[in-house]
């Protein structure tokens, strides 16, 4: 029984990070109608940024978060403004093609620049944990869960209550009307993609602490994010928390009770079920 609870705890903690990983993908998808296949690669780049900030400059990965997010924001803003804007409002297939191309480019560049070695960020407290109610909470997992939740809720509040958040939602809902009232969609799109990339960067930073980075993690992470965004729904940032936690729990429980080989079968099986039963996502309002 203790093992079950421990697996649930691990799943919940991992789920927070999953939510953060998917948050940027869901945001960009919902607002720009781009399924960013390079999202996982952006997470990977965020991981390397944090890794080198830690190993070369000795900056703690949690303190490096704002820096990594800023770097990825700039990258995302430039990508949208000068590359992805070429395919603005074109059919979904074009966006898949161009972001897949970006994914390959980032992967190969990372392999050339950073080598294919496994990297992990190991701060001094990496192996420590706290024990509550006989359950073990690894410090880094606990921290990254907290950070992921703060960023997710922070984005949600920003979207609801700030002028920029309103403009982003307005542009997503009715582009013509937003333009009519002085919103510059190019700027809003670049800003949205920048925020999405910054969130990917934060997720990569945390991922590098709790797991390992290689140039090839992008595709798997994109697939996970895609599943989470579908499960949770695109309308509400809180949907990705539900989707992330659910996916992580399913993965952990499957690994324990069925076997680690069946993890992907279970998680993508749930994805298919959600698509059949509730295609708008668990927290989505309309199909």
């Amino acid at each position: 029984m203790d093992l079950l609870f421990q697996v649930i705890v691990n799943g919940l903690l991992l789920g927070g990070l999953y939510a953060l990983m998917a948050l940027g993908l869901a945001l960009v998808w919902g607002v720009l109608n781009i399924v960013n296949l390079a999202h996982g690669a952006l997470i990977m780049l965020g991981g390397y940024a944090a890794y080198y900030l830690f190993t070369l400059l000795g900056i703690d990965p949690f303190l490096a978060l704002p820096l990594v997010m800023m770097m990825l924001f700039v990258l995302g803003y430039i990508l949208q403004r000068y590359v992805l804007s070429l395919i603005a409002r074109s059919p979904m297939f074009n966006t898949l093609l161009i972001t897949f191309g970006l994914d390959v480019i980032f992967m190969v560049l990372a392999q050339l620049l950073f080598t294919a070695d496994f990297r992990t960020i190991n701060p001094s407290y990496a192996g420590t944990h706290v024990t509550w109610f006989n359950l073990t909470f690894p410090t880094v997992q606990l921290f990254s869960f907290a950070v992921a939740m703060c960023l997710t809720v922070g984005l949600w509040l920003m979207m609801l209550h700030t002028r920029i958040g309103r403009a982003i939602r307005a542009t997503a809902q009715n582009l013509s009307a937003a333009r009519l009232y002085g919103v510059n969609p190019k700027q809003i799109y670049a800003l949205t993609f920048g925020i999405g990339a910054a969130l990917a960067g934060a997720a990569g930073d945390l991922y590098g602490v709790v797991s390992q980075i290689t140039p090839y993690i992008g595709a798997t992470l994109t697939a996970k994010c895609f599943a989470i965004a579908i499960i949770g729904g695109l309308e509400n940032p809180l949907g990705v928390i539900v989707g992330g936690v659910l996916l992580a729990l399913i993965e952990s429980l499957t690994a324990l009770y069925v076997g680690p080989t069946f993890v992907d079968v279970a998680s993508f099986g749930v994805l298919v079920l959600v698509l059949i039963i509730r295609p708008q996502g668990l927290l989505g309002k309309t199909a």
Binding site: R163, A167, Q173, N174, A177, A178, L180, G182
Partner: peptide, 25 residues
């Protein structure tokens, strides 16, 4: 400033938020 044909409201947003969008600039 236009009041467009077909109204083009931000359907998912509240009335108040729609009004605030008018003052975006």
């Amino acid at each position: 400033v236009q009041v467009p044909e077909g109204r083009l409201l931000f359907d998912q947003m509240s009335v108040h938020e729609n009004l605030l969008m008018g003052a975006y600039r």
